[in-house]
């Protein structure tokens, strides 16, 4: 049997606040991602979805519990993972081509060899003609494509994505979703995809994991999505099974979203 790509066991994440109190973001989180599996985490705003992702990346250390990557305990940064950030994370002083090539150059690949491979990746995310542009000359969607190529050129075994298409408009999100599925279909990496958009999660993933509203949020549901692959995001939303699943998950998620919303408004009033 192949080892599990990502396994969080009983993970707890806590932060020390400025006034000395301890804020528990996530508690008792059990989460596994198998090799070749696409798992989406959905939850209300502020539930600690990104926190969990950062634990899997090694950017955050859990206060308790264990993180295992391919059956080995994670120490320091997760070297098997590529991370796609929600905010712009490209190097603004490098052109699109250099931004993609840097992923290889870091590993010691000579520049002469890295550049043509970067060009190939830019072409496969649909930006073959944009290699000479700097990030500020690209649209939000184009920057996400470059970021995707930057991560994928390193061929990570695990892909961690933190609401990567969050800042984009609805149409661009769907286009990017399809692009992601196409690229993923080629070699089926393990994917952990954080989003607040349930439709996006069902359309993309093999499994949808629901988290409760924070603080001390937990994983409260785990659904398998058995829609056939390859999928087209535009088409799959019309599927009967999609609707049934959406209704079922939403009935659970709705309460948490309301709770999260009530908490954030209460907090705002308290201030």
């Amino acid at each position: 049997m192949t080892p599990t790509a990502v396994a969080l066991e009983d993970a707890k994440v806590a932060f020390r606040l400025g006034d000395g109190r301890v804020y528990t973001a996530v508690e008792q989180a059990h989460l596994t991602v198998d090799q070749g599996e696409f798992v989406a985490i959905v939850g209300p705003t502020g539930c600690g979805k990104s926190t969990l992702l950062n634990v899997a990346a090694g950017l955050l250390k859990p206060a308790a519990g264990s993180v295992r990557i391919f059956d080995r305990p994670l120490a320091g940064l997760n070297r098997d993972a590529g991370y796609l950030f929600q905010a712009d994370a490209l190097f603004p002083w490098k052109t699109a081509l250099d931004n993609v090539a840097i992923g290889l150059e870091i590993k010691g690949t000579p520049r002469a060899e890295a550049l043509p491979r970067a060009q190939k990746w830019l072409t496969s995310v649909g930006l073959g003609a944009f290699g000479g542009r700097y990030p500020h000359m690209l649209s939000g969607g184009q920057r996400k494509r470059v970021a995707l190529a930057q991560v994928l050129i390193r061929d990570p075994k695990i892909l961690l994505m933190d609401e990567p298409f969050g800042p984009l408009d609805a149409q661009t999100r769907q286009v990017m979703g399809n692009l992601l599925l196409d690229l993923w279909n080629a070699d089926r990496k393990a994917v952990l995809f954080v989003t607040h958009d349930l439709e996006e999660a069902i359309a993309l993933a093999d499994r949808v994991v629901i988290m409760s509203a924070g603080p001390s949020s937990r994983i409260i549901g785990d659904w398998r999505v058995s829609l056939p692959r390859p999928r087209d995001i535009f088409e799959v939303r019309l599927d009967k099974e999609f609707h049934a699943l959406h209704r079922e998950i939403w009935s659970v998620l709705k309460d948490e979203v309301m709770k999260g919303y009530a908490q954030s408004t209460n907090a705002a009033e308290a201030v």
Binding site: L77, G82, K94, I102
Partner: peptide
């Protein structure tokens, strides 16, 4: 930017490479 720095780390940059890039 915190994100750019984290991105550099996740891409595997060493301290020296973070300095340079």
């Amino acid at each position: 930017s915190r994100t750019v720095l984290d991105n550099g780390r996740m891409l595997g940059m060493s301290e020296r490479q973070l300095m340079q890039h």
